[in-house]
Design a protein around this nucleic acid. Structure first.
Length: 497
RNA sequence: GGUCGCGUGGCCGAGCGGUUAGGCAGAGGUCUGCAAAACCUUGUACAGCGGUUCGAAUCCGCUCGCGACCUCCA
C-alpha cells in the first residue's frame, strides 16, 4: 500500500497544523462523536457529519485503511434538570426509551443517506457497552481518580489536574477558574469534592427509566464515559484521530481525555479535529428566536428563511465551499449561488467525459497537470475542500473551451486527459461525495435520456429546415417543464433545472 | 466577567509577509435564426487607528463589531 501524499492537519490539542503520522503505517483509527438520539437531526448535525465524511473519504482516497468509529449516544446525556434526554423523550412520546433511541437513530441514518455520507466502519451504542463502562469506572477508581458518594461516582478533576497537568489542555481551561465560576446550584453539586468534578456513574432515582446494576448503585453511566469506552474498545487505548463538533471541546472532550488518562494512563488520540458551528444569516441557529431551519424544510423550501427548496447535493456542495473548521453561514442567496455553481461543475464533468484526444499533446499538458497536482495539494492541507474545489473550477473553462473548440483538445495528451477525467471523477464523487442529480442513473432516467435524444433530434431537423415555429415550440414547451436546451456547435445538450 | 475565534470587493468564501483564489451577481464582447448556454475581457477588496518591515489582508498593539464555549448542544 502506498500513500499518495503527505497530509497536514490542524490539531486542536496543540493548536497547530502538523504533519499527519499514523501510529501504524497505512492504517488510521478515527473516532467521531455521534449524535444523541433524543430528537430529530438538525442541520448542525448534518454539517458536522458531512464534514467528517469528507475527511474520511479523503483519508481513504489517499490510500489509508481507515477504521471509522462513530457512536450513537442513547443513554446518560442529562438535561439541566438532571433528567436523561432519552427518558424525557420517552415520557413525552409515551414510548420505551429504546423506542425513542431507535426512532431517532433511524431518522439520523436516513438523513445521512440523503446527504450521501458514508457509513462508519463501526457504529457502537452506549447502551450496548454498559459493562465496559462499569469496568472503566472501576479502573478510574482503582487509579485514584474516582470517588463514590451516595452511590454515584465522580471523577476527581482537582487531583487529576494536579498530578497530570493536562486537564484543560484541549479547551484552554484553568481548573481554578472553573472553580471560581461554577455555579453552586447545579445537580448534585453538594456531593462533589470540587465543582468541576463530573459524574462517571450516577445513581438512579426510583422513577428513572434507564438503569443498570453496578457495584455502586442501580444507575447509569455519565455522558462522557461512553466515548472513552467505545473508542478504547474499538480503536485501542491510543489511536490517531478524534473528531467532533467544536461545542464538544468542553466539557465533553476534555473530560473524555481525563477519563482515558485516568483509566489507561495514556492520551487517547494524537490528533483532535473539530468542525465549526453552523450559523444562519450570521447568527446562531436558535429555536427560541426562530432563527432555525430543519434539513427537511431546507430541502422542501417550506420555511420563511428560503425562497425555494434545495437539493441535498446542492446543500452538500454549499458546505464544501467553506472549510470545516470555519463557521458556516447559511443564507438563501448563498445557497442560490451554490446551486448554480454545483450545476456548472456537474455539466463540466459531463462535457469532460465526452472529450477525446488522439494526439500526444504538449502545449496544454503542463498547465493542466499543474492544476491537477494543486487540487491534491490543497486537499492535503488540512482538508481544504473549498480551495481544492476552486482548482476544479479553474479547470472548468478549459474543459468547456476544448468542447467548443476555443482551445484545441489535441494540445492535450491522452494521459493528461485521462488524468483530468480521473481527477474530476475522484474528487467530485469519491472525495466530495457529491452525486450528479441531473443524470440519476435509474431506469426512468434511461428512458428520459432516450426521449430527450429523440426530441432534440426532431428539433434539429426542424432547425435545419428553418422551421423556427416548430423548433421554438419544442424549446418553449421543454422550458416550461424546466428543461433547458443548450445549442452548441456539435449538437444540443439539455439540463433539468 | 473568563477563554477562544472571526471581521476580505454587491453576496458567499479561500488566502496567513511580496505572485490571478474560486463561486454567484454585474458590465462589454464572440458565437447563435432568435434566445439560452458556452467562451473571452472586465472588478484592484481586505472593520478602524497605530506599529514592526524594503514590503502586510497576512505579524504586533489598541478600538469597534460579530460569533462560539464557559450550563444541554454537532
Amino acid at each position: 500500500m502506498s500513500i499518495k501524499k503527505e497530509l497536514l492537519v490542524y490539531n486542536s490539542l496543540t493548536r497547530k497544523k502538523e504533519v499527519f503520522k499514523p501510529i501504524n503505517e497505512g492504517f488510521i483509527g478515527m473516532y467521531v462523536c455521534g449524535p444523541t438520539v433524543y430528537s430529530d437531526v438538525h442541520l448542525g448535525n448534518v454539517r458536522t457529519f458531512v464534514g467528517f465524511d469528507i475527511i474520511y473519504r479523503f483519508l481513504c482516497y489517499l490510500g489509508y485503511n481507515v477504521r471509522y468509529v462513530r457512536n450513537i449516544t442513547d443513554v446518560g446525556h442529562l438535561l439541566d434538570d438532571g433528567e436523561d434526554r432519552m427518558s424525557k423523550g420517552a415520557k413525552a412520546e409515551n414510548l420505551e426509551p429504546m423506542e425513542v433511541a431507535q426512532k431517532y437513530t433511524n431518522g439520523f441514518h436516513a438523513m445521512m443517506s440523503i446527504f450521501n455520507a458514508k457509513k462508519p466502519s463501526i457504529e457502537p451504542r452506549a447502551t450496548g457497552h454498559i459493562l465496559e463502562q462499569i469496568e472503566m469506572v472501576q479502573a478510574i477508581i482503582d487509579n485514584g481518580f474516582g470517588y463514590e458518594v451516595n452511590g454515584s461516582v465522580y471523577f476527581d478533576t482537582l487531583k487529576f489536574a494536579h498530578e497530570r497537568k493536562t486537564y484543560g489542555k484541549l479547551s484552554g481551561r484553568v481548573i481554578d477558574e472553573l472553580m471560581a465560576e461554577s455555579r453552586s446550584d447545579l445537580k448534585n453539586q453538594s456531593d462533589k469534592k470540587h465543582p468541576s468534578d463530573f459524574a462517571i456513574w450516577m445513581k438512579a432515582s426510583d422513577d428513572h427509566l434507564m438503569k443498570w446494576n453496578s457495584p455502586w448503585s442501580v444507575g447509569f453511566p455519565g455522558w462522557h464515559l461512553e466515548c472513552s469506552v467505545m473508542s478504547t474498545k474499538y480503536l485501542g487505548k491510543h489511536f490517531d484521530i478524534h473528531g467532533g463538533g467544536n461545542d464538544l471541546k468542553f466539557p465533553h472532550h476534555e473530560n473524555e481525555i481525563a477519563q482515558n488518562e485516568g483509566a489507561c494512563n495514556c492520551s487517547p488520540s494524537n490528533y483532535w479535529l473539530h468542525t465549526n458551528m453552523l450559523l444562519m444569516n450570521g447568527k446562531k441557529m436558535s429555536k427560541s428566536d426562530g432563527n432555525t431551519i430543519t434539513p427537511e424544510a431546507l430541502m422542501s423550501g417550506d420555511s420563511p428563511h428560503v425562497s425555494q427548496g434545495y437539493d441535498p447535493m446542492v446543500i452538500r456542495f454549499f458546505m464544501l465551499q467553506t472549510h470545516y473548521a470555519s463557521t458556516l453561514d447559511i443564507s438563501d442567496d448563498a445557497l442560490k449561488a451554490a446551486e448554480k455553481g454545483y450545476k456548472r461543475l456537474m455539466q463540466a464533468n459531463q462535457v469532460l467525459n465526452k472529450l477525446e484526444t488522439t494526439a500526444t499533446g504538449n502545449g496544454e499538458d503542463a498547465e493542466v497537470l499543474q492544476l491537477i497536482e494543486a487540487t491534491l495539494t490543497d486537499m492535503c492541507d488540512d482538508f481544504n475542500a473549498p480551495k481544492a474545489l476552486s482548482r476544479l473550477f479553474e479547470l472548468v473553462p478549459k474543459i468547456n473551451s476544448y468542447k467548443e473548440g476555443h482551445l484545441d483538445v489535441n494540445q492535450l495528451s491522452k494521459s493528461t486527459l485521462d488524468a483530468l477525467k480521473a481527477l474530476f471523477h475522484e474528487f467530485i464523487f469519491d472525495v466530495f461525495g457529491l452525486k450528479d442529480i441531473s443524470t440519476g442513473g435509474s431506469e426512468s432516467a434511461h428512458i428520459v435520456n432516450g426521449l430527450m435524444e429523440l426530441i432534440t433530434d426532431l428539433r434539429q431537423d426542424a432547425r435545419a429546415n428553418k422551421d423556427w415555429g416548430t423548433s421554438d415550440k419544442i424549446r418553449d414547451k421543454l422550458t416550461s417543464l424546466d428543461i433547458q436546451l443548450k445549442d452548441g456547435k456539435d449538437g444540443t445538450s439539455w439540463l433539468i433545472n
